[in-house]
Protein backbone atom coordinates (compact mmCIF):
# COMPACT_ATOMS: atom_id res chain seq x y z
CA UNK A 1 0.00 0.00 0.00
CA UNK A 2 1.31 3.44 -0.90
CA UNK A 3 0.15 6.50 1.03
CA UNK A 4 0.96 9.78 -0.68
CA UNK A 5 0.63 12.87 1.52
CA UNK A 6 0.67 16.51 0.54
CA UNK A 7 3.08 18.25 2.90
CA UNK A 8 3.47 21.92 3.59
CA UNK A 9 5.08 23.69 6.53
CA UNK A 10 5.31 27.30 7.61
CA UNK A 11 7.91 29.09 5.50
CA UNK A 12 7.91 26.62 2.59
CA UNK A 13 7.53 28.13 -0.86
CA UNK A 14 5.72 25.15 -2.30
CA UNK A 15 4.09 21.98 -1.04
CA UNK A 16 5.75 18.62 -1.47
CA UNK A 17 4.32 15.11 -1.89
CA UNK A 18 5.76 12.39 0.36
CA UNK A 19 5.32 8.71 -0.38
CA UNK A 20 5.03 6.18 2.45
CA UNK A 21 5.02 2.44 1.86
CA UNK A 22 2.82 0.82 4.53
CA UNK A 23 1.11 -2.44 5.35
CA UNK A 24 -2.64 -1.91 5.40
CA UNK A 25 -5.79 -3.88 6.00
CA UNK A 26 -8.55 -2.96 3.50
CA UNK A 27 -11.08 -2.75 6.34
CA UNK A 28 -9.14 -0.19 8.39
CA UNK A 29 -9.82 3.51 8.08
CA UNK A 30 -7.72 5.95 6.08
CA UNK A 31 -7.31 7.89 9.32
CA UNK A 32 -5.80 4.88 11.11
CA UNK A 33 -3.33 4.58 8.25
CA UNK A 34 -2.35 8.26 8.47
CA UNK A 35 -2.01 7.97 12.25
CA UNK A 36 0.23 4.92 11.93
CA UNK A 37 2.49 6.74 9.49
CA UNK A 38 2.76 9.62 11.97
CA UNK A 39 3.63 7.24 14.82
CA UNK A 40 6.03 4.93 12.99
CA UNK A 41 7.48 6.74 10.01
CA UNK A 42 7.26 10.49 10.37
CA UNK A 43 6.33 12.16 13.68
CA UNK A 44 6.32 15.58 12.01
CA UNK A 45 3.27 14.65 9.92
CA UNK A 46 0.36 16.71 11.25
CA UNK A 47 -3.38 16.09 10.83
CA UNK A 48 -6.52 16.65 12.86
CA UNK A 49 -8.43 13.83 14.54
CA UNK A 50 -10.33 13.08 17.73
CA UNK A 51 -13.37 10.80 17.83
CA UNK A 52 -12.45 8.21 15.18
CA UNK A 53 -16.13 7.43 14.66
CA UNK A 54 -17.56 10.22 12.57
CA UNK A 55 -19.09 12.56 15.15
CA UNK A 56 -16.54 15.33 15.75
CA UNK A 57 -15.73 16.52 12.22
CA UNK A 58 -11.98 16.85 12.82
CA UNK A 59 -10.63 14.42 10.23
CA UNK A 60 -11.93 15.77 6.90
CA UNK A 61 -9.36 15.46 4.08
CA UNK A 62 -9.34 15.17 0.32
CA UNK A 63 -8.76 11.48 -0.43
CA UNK A 64 -7.92 10.59 -4.03
CA UNK A 65 -9.58 13.82 -5.07
CA UNK A 66 -12.76 13.49 -3.00
CA UNK A 67 -13.59 15.11 0.35
CA UNK A 68 -14.14 12.53 3.08
CA UNK A 69 -14.24 12.01 6.82
CA UNK A 70 -11.21 9.76 6.93
CA UNK A 71 -12.17 7.95 10.14
CA UNK A 72 -15.22 6.41 8.49
CA UNK A 73 -13.59 5.83 5.09
CA UNK A 74 -12.19 2.35 4.59
CA UNK A 75 -8.84 1.94 2.87
CA UNK A 76 -10.22 -0.81 0.61
CA UNK A 77 -13.06 1.40 -0.61
CA UNK A 78 -10.91 4.28 -1.85
CA UNK A 79 -7.46 2.91 -2.77
CA UNK A 80 -6.73 3.03 -6.50
CA UNK A 81 -4.11 0.54 -7.68
CA UNK A 82 -2.81 0.37 -4.15
CA UNK A 83 -2.39 4.14 -3.86
CA UNK A 84 -4.13 6.63 -1.57
CA UNK A 85 -3.41 10.33 -1.97
CA UNK A 86 -4.41 12.54 0.97
CA UNK A 87 -4.51 16.32 0.79
CA UNK A 88 -5.86 19.03 3.11
CA UNK A 89 -9.39 20.37 2.56
CA UNK A 90 -9.68 23.19 0.01
CA UNK A 91 -11.32 26.48 0.89
CA UNK A 92 -9.36 26.93 4.13
CA UNK A 93 -5.85 28.20 4.80
CA UNK A 94 -3.40 25.33 5.36
CA UNK A 95 -1.77 25.43 8.79
CA UNK A 96 0.57 22.45 8.45
CA UNK A 97 0.35 19.39 6.17
CA UNK A 98 -3.25 18.12 6.44
CA UNK A 99 -4.30 20.63 9.11
CA UNK A 100 -6.37 23.59 7.94
CA UNK A 101 -7.60 26.66 9.79
CA UNK A 102 -11.39 26.29 10.09
CA UNK A 103 -11.97 29.73 11.59
CA UNK A 104 -13.76 30.98 8.47
CA UNK A 105 -16.53 28.56 9.43
CA UNK A 106 -16.50 28.75 13.24
CA UNK A 107 -15.98 32.51 13.50
CA UNK A 108 -19.25 33.03 11.62
CA UNK A 109 -21.32 31.41 14.33
CA UNK A 110 -23.57 33.84 16.14
CA UNK A 111 -22.98 33.93 19.88
CA UNK A 112 -26.31 32.32 20.65
CA UNK A 113 -25.76 29.40 18.31
CA UNK A 114 -28.04 26.51 19.12
CA UNK A 115 -25.96 23.38 19.25
CA UNK A 116 -28.89 21.19 20.27
CA UNK A 117 -31.83 20.27 18.14
CA UNK A 118 -35.07 19.37 19.92
CA UNK A 119 -36.27 16.27 18.09
CA UNK A 120 -39.18 15.51 20.42
CA UNK A 121 -40.66 17.15 23.49
CA UNK A 122 -38.22 15.40 25.81
CA UNK A 123 -35.37 14.63 23.43
CA UNK A 124 -32.30 16.74 22.74
CA UNK A 125 -29.84 15.96 19.99
CA UNK A 126 -26.64 17.53 18.75
CA UNK A 127 -27.17 18.47 15.11
CA UNK A 128 -26.17 15.83 12.58
CA UNK A 129 -23.80 18.39 11.06
CA UNK A 130 -20.41 17.45 12.55
CA UNK A 131 -18.83 20.78 11.52
CA UNK A 132 -16.17 19.16 9.38
CA UNK A 133 -15.87 21.86 6.72
CA UNK A 134 -16.13 19.36 3.87
CA UNK A 135 -18.96 21.38 2.31
CA UNK A 136 -16.67 24.44 2.11
CA UNK A 137 -13.98 22.42 0.41
CA UNK A 138 -16.47 21.02 -2.09
CA UNK A 139 -18.16 24.37 -2.83
CA UNK A 140 -16.95 26.34 -5.87
CA UNK A 141 -18.17 29.60 -4.31
CA UNK A 142 -16.62 29.06 -0.87
CA UNK A 143 -13.29 28.20 -2.53
CA UNK A 144 -13.18 31.40 -4.58
CA UNK A 145 -15.02 33.90 -2.39
CA UNK A 146 -13.48 34.13 1.11
CA UNK A 147 -16.29 36.18 2.68
CA UNK A 148 -19.00 33.71 1.68
CA UNK A 149 -20.64 32.48 4.90
CA UNK A 150 -20.55 28.95 3.59
CA UNK A 151 -22.91 25.98 3.30
CA UNK A 152 -23.03 24.62 6.87
CA UNK A 153 -23.43 28.01 8.53
CA UNK A 154 -26.29 28.86 6.14
CA UNK A 155 -27.92 25.48 6.74
CA UNK A 156 -27.88 26.17 10.47
CA UNK A 157 -29.35 29.61 9.76
CA UNK A 158 -32.15 27.92 7.83
CA UNK A 159 -33.09 25.87 10.90
CA UNK A 160 -33.07 29.00 13.04
CA UNK A 161 -35.24 30.78 10.48
CA UNK A 162 -37.82 28.00 10.55
CA UNK A 163 -37.82 27.93 14.34
CA UNK A 164 -37.85 31.67 15.01
CA UNK A 165 -38.93 33.34 11.77
CA UNK A 166 -35.77 35.48 11.79
CA UNK A 167 -32.28 35.54 10.29
CA UNK A 168 -29.31 37.84 10.95
CA UNK A 169 -28.70 40.35 8.13
CA UNK A 170 -25.46 38.78 6.78
CA UNK A 171 -27.37 35.58 6.00
CA UNK A 172 -29.67 37.50 3.66
CA UNK A 173 -26.86 39.48 2.04
CA UNK A 174 -24.48 38.95 -0.85
CA UNK A 175 -22.07 37.00 1.39
CA UNK A 176 -25.02 34.85 2.47
CA UNK A 177 -27.62 32.80 0.61
CA UNK A 178 -27.54 34.93 -2.55
CA UNK A 179 -23.99 33.84 -3.42
CA UNK A 180 -24.85 30.18 -3.71
CA UNK A 181 -24.57 28.87 -7.30
CA UNK A 182 -26.72 25.85 -6.55
CA UNK A 183 -23.96 23.47 -7.52
CA UNK A 184 -25.00 21.10 -4.71
CA UNK A 185 -21.46 19.75 -4.33
CA UNK A 186 -21.86 20.50 -0.61
CA UNK A 187 -24.81 18.13 -0.28
CA UNK A 188 -23.11 15.60 -2.51
CA UNK A 189 -20.01 15.41 -0.31
CA UNK A 190 -21.54 16.00 3.13
CA UNK A 191 -20.75 12.86 5.16
CA UNK A 192 -23.98 13.02 7.18
CA UNK A 193 -26.46 14.06 4.51
CA UNK A 194 -27.20 17.39 6.21
CA UNK A 195 -28.24 18.77 2.79
CA UNK A 196 -26.83 22.28 3.11
CA UNK A 197 -27.54 23.02 -0.56
CA UNK A 198 -31.24 22.22 -0.28
CA UNK A 199 -31.48 24.21 2.94
CA UNK A 200 -29.93 27.28 1.31
CA UNK A 201 -32.55 27.05 -1.47
CA UNK A 202 -35.36 26.73 1.04
CA UNK A 203 -34.06 29.70 2.99
CA UNK A 204 -33.98 31.76 -0.21
CA UNK A 205 -37.60 30.87 -0.88
CA UNK A 206 -38.56 31.88 2.66
CA UNK A 207 -36.80 35.22 2.19
CA UNK A 208 -38.40 35.85 -1.22
CA UNK A 209 -41.84 35.15 0.22
CA UNK A 210 -41.10 37.51 3.09
CA UNK A 211 -41.77 34.63 5.47
CA UNK A 212 -38.72 35.41 7.60
CA UNK A 213 -37.63 38.67 9.08
CA UNK A 214 -34.10 40.01 8.53
CA UNK A 215 -32.66 41.46 11.74
Amino acid sequence: MRLVVRRWKEGWRAPRYDVFEVEADPSESVLDLVERVSLKLDPTLTFEHACHHGVCGACGMVVNGVERLTCVTRVGDVARNGVILVEPLHGFKVVSDLVVDKSRMFSRYPDDTRTLERVAAQVEKLWDCVECGICYSACPVACSYPSYLGPSVLAWAFHRAVEEGRVPAPVASRSGVWSCHAAFDCSEKCPVNFQPGEKIMRLRRLLLRGAVEVV
Binding site: S38, P43, T46, E48, H49, A50, C51, V55, C56, A58
Partner: peptide, 14 residues
Protein backbone atom coordinates in the same frame (compact mmCIF):
# COMPACT_ATOMS: atom_id res chain seq x y z
CA UNK B 1 1.96 16.69 20.24
CA UNK B 2 -1.05 16.25 17.94
CA UNK B 3 -4.39 17.97 17.47
CA UNK B 4 -6.74 18.73 20.38
CA UNK B 5 -8.12 15.50 21.82
CA UNK B 6 -6.01 13.28 19.58
CA UNK B 7 -5.05 11.00 22.49
CA UNK B 8 -7.57 9.13 24.60
CA UNK B 9 -9.99 12.00 25.21
CA UNK B 10 -11.23 12.24 21.63
CA UNK B 11 -11.83 8.50 21.50
CA UNK B 12 -14.33 7.85 24.28
CA UNK B 13 -17.96 6.79 24.26
CA UNK B 14 -18.97 10.35 24.98
Amino acid sequence: RGSAGSGTSGRTHG
